[in-house]
């Protein structure tokens, strides 16, 4: 029997990351980076944001957004390195670096949100 690829695991994370990043990040960046500083929209005060983050579902959603975005980056950067630099022979270390970074980042984000 031919060995089927395990690429679908990473590709699924990549695809999910692409979707959440495209849907959420422009809106988040626009609000926190442009609309609030320029006072187009009233910025939420510290207490109400803090209250929002006390809801575990909000923290879970934030974790999903940042973690999946990181896996999206990892997958894309891995192939950018392979195809851009023609370093197919470094397959294992490149994958370890890219996905390892995303996993470490996810762990850091999870810990930060948990101990928040």
């Amino acid at each position: 029997m031919v060995k089927r690829s395990n690429e679908p695991f990473w590709w699924a994370l990549f695809g999910a990351g692409g979707v959440v990043a495209a849907l959420c990040l422009p809106a988040l960046l626009f609000m926190t980076g442009v609309a609030f500083p320029l006072e187009w929209l009233a910025a939420p005060d510290y207490e109400s944001l803090y209250g929002l983050f006390e809801n575990p579902l909000v923290r879970l959603a934030i974790l999903a957004i940042v973690s999946l975005s990181a896996f999206h980056w990892a997958h894309r950067f891995r192939f950018t390195l392979y195809d851009g630099l023609h370093i197919k022979h470094l397959n294992a270390p490149v994958a370890l670096f890219c996905y390892g970074s995303a996993i470490a980042f996810t762990g850091f984000a999870a810990l930060s949100l948990y101990t928040f």
């Binding site: 029997m1 031919v2 060995k3 089927r4 690829s5 679908p8």
Partner: peptide
């Protein structure tokens, strides 16, 4: 065909 297509 999946044995051919779903490979590296």
């Amino acid at each position: 065909r999946m044995d051919i297509l779903s490979t590296d």
